[in-house]
Design a protein around this nucleic acid. Structure first.
Lengths: 327, 327
DNA sequence: CCCTCCTTGTGAAAAGTTTCATATACAAAG
DNA sequence: CTTTGTATATGAAACTTTTCACAAGGAGGG
């Protein structure tokens, strides 16, 4: 006969002590040395493990955090998921992962599921306004859809500025900003704003092309580059792309036109994604501090005192040369 | 005052019915139309959601599956995680994700955590023999550490054969197999076994270099290639690498030696990882059916009748040209 | 019109914890 | 030797659900 998992009652019986005493031992509440020893011995003997479901039911605390991401099949999200998972594990929390494909219905559905599953909080990289309980701690990544929800983000505006300054420092005189991403005005726009601000201040010409996810076919960009060609040469000599992925796509499109980075045009991306081998970057880029973002999300979410959590934590970015600039 | 989440009792009261009736409604147990309507109305009004922790405590079924992976920051694992997550969501299951960095202690610790958290089963890509409850469904990916634990894997041996046949078909006459990975004899070895078997059968020379994770510095491979150089040319004209990642590293090392794929040597990798943009492969490769593997894992784990689960499900692989072969 | 049978809703018990009011034991003080 | 006080173990209640034995009420047959 297959025995059911042992319970505290079994342990109490085995150790010859009361139920409450066993509970205390497993919650680190002081208890007489001899009692503690007896309980631990009995627990070890029976192979007892706390039943988190019973505990969660009683305490309304589950030591579980729900993480909602568009997907995990993209290096930025994957790194984020991994760091968050590790940060949670270090604090003895578990991670319940939901992927949404940025679909508003799925996003909302995930939030509802979380309520059922009594997670202690949510870390979410979501693109749509969601109905979420007032009293369920929520930390947004990159964006917040409600003023009382704190948000952890890289300094996108500063990163845009940095990209512009870097390109100018590297000798560029005619810049461009290319953007794709979610149609909702978001962080990628701020990158462009910072970039353009520097261009304006330095009175450098800056061509801009902002596209949304649905409407960002290669042809749009090909057309853009053709429009800026003169005599077989690209007038633009420095490009800032809103993501590394976009920068990579642009390199391919430019290659079709017979143009290469960094020889013909210098390119800076954004994210700091590395090739899966580990070391090399896809392009010169503005690096998001992903590990720090993950750590910060977890810290904010699990903060003891949540009364004065900052609305926005903006983490510093840095520049890294990755072969598409002439260093 | 902040109200606690509404319970079935609240719903029962609001609807003017008994507790058991509410329970039946939420479990799809037939109940009089008028009663059902009253309960649903009340639940909607109060915003009631089932408390999975209470349900789990009572039924000992949590609709949660633990997924244990070395990490999620590698495209193969990331894809696996994502597909598994989606497959589980489709079946109304949740995913508890644990990452282990292949560390034996962390792996064992995860399994223990799962027991506490009462997951209904585990899908694990682990490298070490673990102590896991007999009665906790477990499905291994790529390897099984106990005969009664089923395993879902790509046809690694067949993939190795396919790689050899493909290289020969493409005109190669002197082959090599390069392997890195976990030191425990595993799936990557079978790839080599299949490859070598074809070489033997066709009486084609095949150089072999098998290294483990700790001892696979670039220098080892550089040395290997130098040893097979004659008069500035590489004698080997077809290489099979145990992973796409390794194939990528080899390309870089070969480039240092002034050799390029596919001009100087043709290379086939294994995994079928794509660049994060979505389309392009890192190299010509044997493609693992990741989506199918994920789906199969979930199916096996959640099978109603687990009495005659196959010990090994071996899924077919395919070849895809990715620029490092002369098609 | 009454009795029986069947259907269907009812509410108490149980699942494994935590918590808190109570009981016990022992030491110190009178 | 009794009393008071303190420290600490005890066990019943509560958390929210599911389940099951039971009650209630309606239908159909005699």
């Amino acid at each position: 006969m297959k025995n059911a998992a042992p319970t505290m009652k079994d342990v109490a019986q085995e150790a010859g002590v009361a139920l409450g005493t066993v509970s205390k031992v497993f919650n680190g509440i002081p208890v007489g040395e001899s009692y503690k020893a007896k309980v631990e011995e009995a627990a070890r003997k029976l192979g007892y493990q706390v039943n988190q479901y019973a505990r969660g039911l009683k305490t309304n605390k589950t030591n579980t955090v729900a993480v909602i991401l568009p997907g995990v099949n993209h290096p930025f999200f994957a790194a984020l998921a991994q760091y968050i998972c590790e940060a949670l594990a270090r604090r003895d929390y578990r991670m319940l992962l939901y992927v949404t494909a940025s679909n508003p219905e799925i996003e909302q559905n995930c939030v509802n599921m979380v309520r059922q599953n009594k997670a202690d909080g949510i870390i979410g990289l979501t693109y749509n306004p969601l109905a979420v309980d007032e009293d369920l701690p929520f930390v947004g990544i990159d964006r917040s859809f409600r003023p009382d929800i704190p948000c952890v983000a890289a300094d996108n505006y500063g990163g845009g500025r940095l990209a512009a300054e870097k390109l100018l420092e590297l000798g560029c005189r005619r810049l461009a900003f290319l953007r794709t991403g979610s149609s909702s005005p978001g962080e990628t726009d701020k990158r462009g704003d910072g970039f353009e601000a520097v261009c304006r201040a330095r009175q450098v010409p800056c061509a801009v092309l902002r596209r949304n996810d649905g409407e960002d076919g290669d042809e749009v960009f090909r057309e853009f580059f053709r429009a800026h060609m003169a005599g077989g040469r690209l007038e633009i000599d420095g490009i800032f792309c809103s993501t590394d992925l976009l920068a990579w796509r642009m390199q391919n499109i430019l290659a079709e036109l017979g143009l290469r980075a960094p020889e013909d045009v210098q390119i800076i991306g954004f994210d700091g994604i590395r090739r899966f081998g580990g070391e090399t970057l896809y392009c010169s880029t503005i690096v998001q501090p992903i590990a720090k973002m993950a750590e910060t999300c977890v810290d904010l979410l699990l903060a003891k005192d949540r009364s004065n959590i900052p609305a926005l934590v903006c983490l510093p970015v840095s520049y890294a040369a990755g072969g598409t600039t002439r260093e």
